[in-house]
């Protein structure tokens, strides 16, 4: 008798749990929540904030002092001081450095398990990438604005373009940085290791930075570097940024503007497609 009763109890209906019924949020909510998260991580870490804002200032200080003699060059007189020549291009190169750290940031999260958590949740992985791209672009904007203020106050940056011209240069730099961000996100999802990422980033960034008109007029470079500088997409962004800020255009304004924005768009599209494909959940 007892045995029968126990057997019935053991095979009885298991209580159904009260699932909360949360089956996932909308794409927009995912992007918003994840963007806020990345920004908070950045803003709440005072050391990270300090150094990421300090880095472009140190670059600016070094270049303006070490290369200050460039302003003696005949072709440089039109810009007044070297800082007016240097700062618009530093906006673009800083945007590129910032874009690179976007890829490193993604890799860090891929290795520390945060991404692994999202993968097992009803979360769009494209939302994860988009949120990173957005939050890093906001971070980039903060970096560039701080740099602009410091340049005006400490280095005597007084370009002919005025506030409006500088704001336009900032905007172009942000678009270029945003596009390059997708390139580095694509590289990050491809190499999957922070060390490899650093090496690839170094190989990408330095030729782009120095094989351009960022620090020296292209006309002063050896012939073969001139060829590179003229096909370097970064050169267009630098011409555009410098033209907008200083009103001195080294190439056709409409052409450089359209070229720099279009190249950024193409890089963002291709980078985004590759990153999303590599980032897929299953294989």
């Amino acid at each position: 008798m007892t045995t029968t009763v126990q057997a019935t109890a053991a095979t009885g209906e298991v209580p159904r749990r009260n699932d909360l019924g949360w089956r996932g949020s909308s794409f927009a909510t995912q992007v918003w929540v994840l963007t806020q998260r990345s920004l908070n991580t950045f803003l709440r870490d005072p050391r990270m904030l300090f150094f990421s804002l300090l880095q472009p200032l140190v670059m600016l200080l070094l270049f303006s002092q070490v290369f200050g003699g460039i302003s003696q060059l005949g072709s440089m007189h039109q810009w007044g001081s070297y800082i007016n020549y240097l700062l618009p291009s530093t906006l673009v190169t800083t945007a590129m450095t910032s874009a690179m750290s976007s890829g490193v940031g993604l890799l860090t999260e891929m290795s520390n398990g945060v991404i692994a958590r999202f993968r097992s949740m009803p979360v769009s992985l494209f939302a994860v990438l988009l949120a990173r791209s957005l939050s890093d672009t906001v971070r980039m904007a903060i970096q560039l604005v701080v740099m602009l203020i410091a340049a005006a106050l400490l280095f005597g940056f007084t370009p002919a373009g005025g506030m409006l011209g500088v704001a336009a240069a900032l905007l172009v730099s942000l678009v270029v940085g945003w596009g390059l961000g997708w390139l580095f996100l694509a590289i990050a999802t491809w190499v999957k290791k922070a060390e490899t990422m650093q090496a690839v980033a170094f190989l990408t960034m330095f030729p782009l930075m120095f094989g351009s008109s960022a620090y020296m007029p292209v006309s002063t470079m050896p012939g073969w570097v001139q060829v590179i500088a003229n096909v370097n997409p970064l050169s267009y962004a630098i011409f555009a940024s410098r033209g907008l800020a200083t009103t001195i255009w080294e190439a056709n304004p409409a052409y450089t503007l359209i070229a720099s924005l279009a190249i950024s768009g193409v890089i963002a599209l291709v980078g985004g497609l590759i990153a999303t494909r590599n980032f897929r959940r299953t294989n």
């Binding site: 949360w22 996932g24 692994a116």
Partner: peptide
Amino acid sequence: GQFASVDENMSGFDNLVLIARLLGA
């Protein structure tokens, strides 16, 4: 998983809130 999948820079509370929000809460 075998390795803790939490955001180390966020507090315990913020980690759990993030997940709940992503789930639609």
